[in-house]
Design a protein around this nucleic acid. Structure first.
Length: 720
DNA sequence: ATAGGGTTAG
């Protein structure tokens, strides 16, 4: 009895001042006392529910709520809030509807939670009807309710079929490409697509009072839906209303300058962030990292990351993505390992960001390890990750695995289609590539700029100029894609390889964009393959006009002159290079053995096993000579004798890597080699024969495509 | 009640 009355007094005191409870523990203790005080009144029960819901303690709140026959407003409000804050959005909305059926009128404080639930459940219609309810109750002038409405319309904009896509941004300012040109959207579609943002703006205009949150919400709403100029205009308007941008504002604005590749403006924001002590904020830092990365300022990205005292998963993801996107693959992989060491769990974004590093470095073993991690983490069904895996397996030489992953995918988007098409293209399977392209079109997936590059690549490696012309002529007609630099480059390359040198020359001359040195270069190498020195000289002159430092062109011309025994001209090229201080990038090949990458430069004797590699090469040479191999030393140095020439050729980097691979792996193992430049004719012949005498599959990826050598033949059928 | 990071490119 005494303890009961003590409990009553205690509970009474606390219920008069519910805010004096500071911890969840205290709140739970109070429940124990409260339960002793039966019978308890609905009003004190409601107060207690509100205490629990403030601590987000769902179960005690529900326990008390269920004991009420007709819960008063405070009880409904608390339970709706508690459900929403614990992620039970459907329950939250059900409660709201039940409350209305009890004839209880909502108060303004509950709308933010109800509206949030509508956003999470992606239920626009319910949100709209709640908006109507808000207006009928005259509660649309409430600041918090207004802010929640702003947020709802901003979020529903991004859920529109075409909403939230960056191309819409470009309509609102001058001098940028119109979205029609970029993706063929009609004006009507565009008009319909910003409906929710219009509603958001209307709500803003109706609000009698706006705070920083209101502005931040509409700024983010515009920025995330590509309405960049409108977002920036609102930042200015916010300033005019005497409100200072805070960390939320900045993290919405920074991605805009990242998209604009405007490092000057981005740096201004960085300065503002530093002056206001925002630079250690994780949100700002990750936006800064991304902004600098987009502006090719990876050092600045790293600077921001290194100064960050607390790093969350997104900071790590940002810096890893920044490195990989800027081609600093080793650093990206290093940071990925550091992230794991720091016990930060990788997320879906981490994997799709890091995978291209394995792809570009052709480190199949790392890619496989990541794939294992992805499977264990249950990330398989993520489209971004699956596409990056398709690309990784294809470019690391395993096209079958790439196709398997592609087939496993439930849905295919344009990127995944393009990845597999490009995979087949690089392996020389033009038929499969073009078939897949047709299937993609039949699936109703629109190809884009990149998809056509893949198509031309396929035609190029299979020698199908007529097919390529058909696609080239139809891409703008069928899909509204204007040929760009990469398409011209691919076409020029393709015509050149097919020996249609004059046609290629005219094609490049007729481009509606100024041809670059690299486009001419593809034709120049075609001239060398097809031994047309006359045209080569013309092409080389074009290259030197636009790109006087083009190393490849000097080397190529020098070699062609040497092959034609025009020693003086060859020497002239080398003197030019010397004068300009241009150095030839060394040819280099690498191979993975037992999870280590071994790199070989042409003529390299530095490998610890060099002696054994040399012995193996000599042995292999004898074996393939018995198979009829005759070294082709035509284009190499002219001032050395034949025996030396033979030696120089067999010191080519791919042969060193190959010999090393043969002596350090068990018989029959497939050998995968990557080379930074194209494999030379002589090595190609030699590797074909080596594949026969050692009875192994040898896969060489050069900078152009894959060569699968087996039983003395190559998958490229000597066309590359 | 408001914020940051991702896949395809001869």
């Amino acid at each position: 009895m005494t303890s009961n009355s003590t409990a009553k007094t205690l509970v009474k005191t606390f219920l008069r001042t519910p805010h004096s409870l500071k911890t969840k523990f205290q709140a739970k203790q109070l429940l124990a006392q409260f339960l002793k005080t039966q019978p308890y009144s609905p009003s004190s029960t409601s107060i207690l529910i509100s205490v629990y819901s403030n601590f987000n303690l769902l179960h005690p709140s529900l326990f008390l709520f269920n004991s009420l026959n007709s819960p008063p407003l405070l009880a409904w409000k608390s339970i709706i809030k508690c459900y929403a804050n614990s992620g039970h959005f459907l329950n939250s909305l059900t409660c709201f509807v039940q409350m209305r059926s009890f004839g209880i009128y909502p108060d303004p404080n509950m709308f933010p939670f109800v509206l949030k639930a509508c956003v999470f459940l992606k239920n626009l219609r319910l949100g709209e009807s709640i908006h109507g309810c808000i207006i009928r109750l005259g509660l649309d002038f409430d600041l918090f309710t207004g802010n929640a409405l702003l947020n709802m319309y901003a979020k529903f904009q991004s859920l529109q079929p075409n909403g939230g896509h960056k191309v819409f941004a470009f309509n609102v300012f001058d001098g940028m490409p119109k979205s029609d040109e970029l993706c063929g959207t009609s004006a009507q579609e565009k008009g319909a697509s910003i409906i929710q943002l219009d509603r958001m703006t209307k709500v803003l205009e109706m609000m009698p009072k706006r705070d920083v949150v209101s502005w931040n919400t509409v700024i983010a709403g515009n920025a995330q839906n590509g309405m960049y100029e409108e977002a920036l205009r609102m930042v200015r308007e916010m300033g005019n209303a005497n409100m200072k941008p805070d960390s939320f504002t900045l993290s919405s604005v920074l991605p805009i300058f990242a998209e604009y590749v405007d490092v000057i403006k981005g740096k201004e924001i960085h300065g503002y962030a530093i002056r206001h002590w925002f630079d250690s904020n994780c949100y700002i830092a990750s936006s800064l990292i991304d902004m600098y990365a987009n502006c090719a300022r990876i050092e600045d990205s790293c600077g921001v990351f290194n100064l960050l005292s607390k790093r969350d998963d997104i900071s790590w993801n940002s810096i890893i993505a920044a490195c990989v996107q800027n081609g600093v693959f080793d650093e990206g992989l290093k940071l990925f390992r550091q992230m794991l060491t720091a016990e930060v769990k990788p997320r879906d974004v981490t994997f799709s960001s890091i995978m291209p590093a394995c792809t570009y470095l052709t480190t199949l073993h790392l890619g496989k390890q990541l794939h294992g991690y992805i499977i264990r983490g249950g990330f398989n069904d993520n489209m971004f990750i699956a596409s990056s895996l398709v690309d990784m397996y294809a470019k690391c030489g395993n096209i079958k695995a790439a196709r398997w992953i592609f087939n496993q995918m439930e849905h295919h988007d344009m990127v995944s289609w393009t990845a597999i098409i490009m995979g087949y293209a690089l392996h020389g399977h033009a038929h499969d590539a073009l078939l897949l392209f047709k299937q993609m079109e039949m699936d109703g997936v629109k190809p884009n700029y990149v998809s056509y590059i893949a198509v031309f690549t396929a035609c190029s490696h299979a020698g199908l100029p007529e097919e390529a012309w058909r696609y080239f002529n139809s891409m703008s007609r069928n899909h509204g894609i204007k040929p760009g630099l990469e398409h011209y480059a691919a076409m020029a390359d393709l015509l050149g390889r097919a020996g249609k040198l004059e046609e290629a020359y005219e094609f490049i001359g007729s481009m509606h964009i100024a041809p670059t040195g690299s486009i001419w270069s593809t034709l120049l190498s075609a001239c060398r393959v097809h031994k047309n020195l006359e045209l080569a000289e013309k092409v080389a002159n074009e290259i030197f006009k636009v790109d006087p430092e083009n190393v490849g062109a000097y080397v190529l011309m020098s070699n062609m002159y040497a092959a034609a025994r025009r020693w003086k001209d060859a020497a002239k090229m080398r003197i030019f290079m010397k004068k300009k201080g241009i150095r030839k990038e060394p040819a280099c090949s690498w191979i993975e053995v037992k999870n280590r990458v071994h790199t070989f430069i042409s003529g390299d004797k530095s490998h610890p096993l060099y002696d054994r590699i040399f012995e193996a090469l000599k042995d292999l040479l004898e074996q393939i000579e018995r198979e009829g191999y005759i070294p082709d030393t035509n284009e190499d140095f002219h001032d050395v004798d034949e025996e030396q020439k033979k030696y120089m050729i067999f010191s080519h980097s791919e042969r060193l890597a190959l010999a090393f691979g043969i002596i350090s792996t068990p018989a029959g193992t497939t050998i995968r080699i990557t080379k930074n430049i194209r494999v030379c004719v002589d090595c190609h012949t030699a590797i074909k024969l080596i594949s026969k005498v050692v009875q192994r599959e040898i896969i060489v990826r050069d900078n152009s495509r894959f060569h699968h050598f087996k039983d003395g033949k190559c998958s490229c059928r000597d066309y590359w």
